[in-house]
Design a protein around this nucleic acid. Sequence first.
DNA 1: ATACCTGCAAAGGTTTTGCACATAC
DNA 2: GTATGTGCAAAACCTTTGCAGGTAT
Lengths: 147, 147
Amino acid sequence: MKNREEVRTLFKTKKVPLTHQRLAVYEELSGRRDHPSAEALYESLRKAYPSLSLATVYKTLQTLHEMGMVARVDSPAAQARYDAIVETHHHAVCTACGRIEDLFDPRLDALPEPKAAGFVISGHSVHFHGLCAKCAKAPSTRTIKEK
Amino acid sequence: MKNREEVRTLFKTKKVPLTHQRLAVYEELSGRRDHPSAEALYESLRKAYPSLSLATVYKTLQTLHEMGMVARVDSPAAQARYDAIVETHHHAVCTACGRIEDLFDPRLDALPEPKAAGFVISGHSVHFHGLCAKCAKAPSTRTIKEK
DNA sequence: ATACCTGCAAAGGTTTTGCACATAC
DNA sequence: GTATGTGCAAAACCTTTGCAGGTAT
């Protein structure tokens, strides 16, 4: 979460053109704590920027994500993936090829109860991310663009 | 992960008709550890069941999920959600309304390194799930079907 | 026998892409 | 001035849905 000056500097440093739209998307997102979808951001921004297009919001979020300024929650790869193991366990997700490995570690099963006012917690899962054995060795075989 | 007899018993107990397709989907998924997508399961199964349709795979996965026999990884709600906070933090996700709350808790930032052979871990995130304050109080206002 | 499931095809919703014009540097 | 971004519309995907015929109990 950066102020306008930091944003300008960061774009300049990374040699990425800073457009009005990019600044607007970043500032709108920074001002919210509800983890909006691309569509939701678009709806908020179009009041102030009527010519803004949804496609630009998507492209901008991708750019900001590549720059490390924005995080994605939930679906890193839009498609749902399934698992016949419903017992508590956790996952390691390869950011290069999308491979998901199961992790069984009792130390991860009991985590401190988070302090989220009024939230009735029924469970949790831990996602580790990084490169799987194959992708760590052979970066050229990556099938998913690293974002 | 249940054997065929356990599966039959579970369907009987829950009074859900056990069809060939449902058994096939469950057994295919049980035999894999790669967390396949619906499409991937369909591709594997159509060799043995040429008349099987993708729609049935989707419907079956939903049924199995409702029965608690199958877990979903990643996108609980297909849409990607964004966050301007890229610093390490965690989330509480409401399974009823989709609300996502930020959690900052240093105790969750340093977790035991998982034992995943060859995996180069670069980070992790913890997702708690349950009901947010509002939904815990007012179950009738739920906007997302609880799956 | 009856309720529910399957397959098909069409629809719905989200995200990506190609292209002409506009803008940042 | 040039490379890159934007807006528009269409396309590509994933998932859901409606309906007629079929199947489990």
